[in-house]
Simulated scan of single mutants.
Amino acid sequence: MKKTLLAVLCVAAAGCSTQGQVDPNVMQIATTPLTCSNKAECEVWWQRAHTWVTSHATYAIEASTDTLIQTAGPDGGKRALAYQITRAANPDGTATIGFAAHCDGAMGCKPNPWEAGADFKQYVRGAAASAPQTGAKPSQPAPATTHPEASQGQSIPPTNGEALSQ
């Protein structure tokens, strides 16, 4: 009995160890700050952010203001992502749009939060057409960016892909 349980746990652990592998291009896009340059661009990007969440979220939108788009969830044990999108004004007149995605699934999230974050940012920038819940890699390479550690207000999730906050 103990040997069987140990074998099952080893297989489960081995399965989890490969879950966290994310394409470096996807990670680069997902960690690039999303900063709009003026009020008009920020309004367009915020509308796109709302459209993306509406078309990709499994959970209902609980809050939608000028600075927050938030879905319900995540529900216990489910792999579906819950989203929280924020908009913060910067002193120079720009604004930074933040992306956070979380699930409560023991086997990871579906779609992968890194891929969802990259897809979200490409869509908001107008750089890619986005299909709901594809989970596919973004089709375009990352734009020129600063080093990910220079992105204030972003946290990098564990490599198991269970949560992403940027």
Rank of each mutant, 00 (worst) to 15 (best):
residue 1 M to R: 11
residue 2 K to I: 05
residue 3 K to Y: 04
residue 3 K to E: 07
residue 6 L to Y: 08
residue 7 A to Q: 07
residue 8 V to Y: 08
residue 8 V to G: 05
residue 8 V to A: 10
residue 8 V to S: 10
residue 10 C to K: 03
residue 12 A to G: 08
residue 12 A to L: 14
residue 13 A to K: 05
residue 14 A to H: 11
residue 14 A to P: 05
residue 15 G to T: 09
residue 16 C to G: 15
residue 19 Q to R: 14
residue 20 G to R: 05
residue 20 G to V: 00
residue 21 Q to G: 08
residue 22 V to M: 04
residue 24 P to V: 07
residue 24 P to F: 01
residue 27 M to S: 14
residue 29 I to L: 09
residue 31 T to C: 08
residue 31 T to F: 11
residue 31 T to H: 13
residue 32 T to N: 00
residue 38 N to E: 05
residue 39 K to T: 11
residue 40 A to L: 12
residue 40 A to P: 04
residue 41 E to S: 05
residue 43 E to F: 09
residue 47 Q to K: 14
residue 49 A to H: 06
residue 49 A to C: 03
residue 50 H to W: 01
residue 52 W to Y: 09
residue 57 A to W: 02
residue 59 Y to G: 02
residue 59 Y to W: 05
residue 60 A to L: 02
residue 64 S to C: 03
residue 64 S to W: 00
residue 65 T to D: 05
residue 66 D to A: 11
residue 66 D to M: 08
residue 68 L to H: 05
residue 68 L to F: 03
residue 70 Q to R: 08
residue 70 Q to E: 13
residue 70 Q to I: 00
residue 70 Q to K: 08
residue 71 T to K: 02
residue 71 T to R: 00
residue 74 P to R: 01
residue 74 P to V: 01
residue 75 D to V: 00
residue 75 D to Q: 08
residue 79 R to V: 13
residue 79 R to H: 11
residue 79 R to Y: 02
residue 79 R to N: 12
residue 81 L to Y: 03
residue 81 L to C: 02
residue 81 L to G: 00
residue 82 A to E: 01
residue 82 A to C: 00
residue 83 Y to I: 01
residue 84 Q to H: 10
residue 84 Q to Y: 08
residue 85 I to S: 04
residue 86 T to L: 01
residue 87 R to M: 10
residue 90 N to F: 00
residue 91 P to I: 01
residue 93 G to Y: 06
residue 95 A to C: 10
residue 96 T to S: 09
residue 96 T to M: 04
residue 96 T to G: 07
residue 100 A to M: 03
residue 101 A to M: 04
residue 102 H to F: 08
residue 103 C to I: 02
residue 104 D to G: 07
residue 107 M to S: 07
residue 108 G to A: 01
residue 109 C to T: 00
residue 110 K to M: 10
residue 112 N to Q: 12
residue 113 P to N: 00
residue 113 P to G: 05
residue 113 P to Q: 01
residue 113 P to I: 05
residue 114 W to A: 10
residue 115 E to R: 14
residue 116 A to N: 02
residue 117 G to I: 04
residue 122 Q to K: 10
residue 122 Q to T: 13
residue 122 Q to R: 12
residue 123 Y to T: 09
residue 123 Y to G: 09
residue 123 Y to E: 06
residue 126 G to L: 04
residue 126 G to I: 06
residue 126 G to V: 03
residue 128 A to R: 12
residue 130 S to Y: 05
residue 131 A to T: 14
residue 131 A to K: 09
residue 132 P to M: 07
residue 132 P to R: 05
residue 132 P to I: 06
residue 136 A to Y: 07
residue 138 P to Q: 06
residue 139 S to G: 15
residue 139 S to P: 10
residue 139 S to F: 07
residue 140 Q to Y: 10
residue 142 A to N: 12
residue 142 A to S: 13
residue 144 A to K: 15
residue 144 A to T: 14
residue 145 T to L: 12
residue 145 T to A: 15
residue 145 T to W: 10
residue 146 T to V: 13
residue 148 P to C: 12
residue 148 P to E: 11
residue 149 E to H: 15
residue 149 E to C: 14
residue 149 E to G: 12
residue 149 E to V: 15
residue 150 A to P: 07
residue 150 A to I: 09
residue 151 S to Y: 11
residue 153 G to Q: 03
residue 155 S to L: 15
residue 157 P to H: 05
residue 157 P to L: 06
residue 158 P to I: 10
residue 159 T to G: 13
residue 159 T to W: 13
residue 159 T to L: 11
residue 160 N to Y: 14
residue 160 N to E: 13
residue 161 G to D: 13
residue 161 G to S: 14
residue 162 E to L: 01
residue 163 A to C: 06
residue 163 A to N: 13
residue 163 A to W: 15
residue 165 S to V: 07
residue 166 Q to F: 15
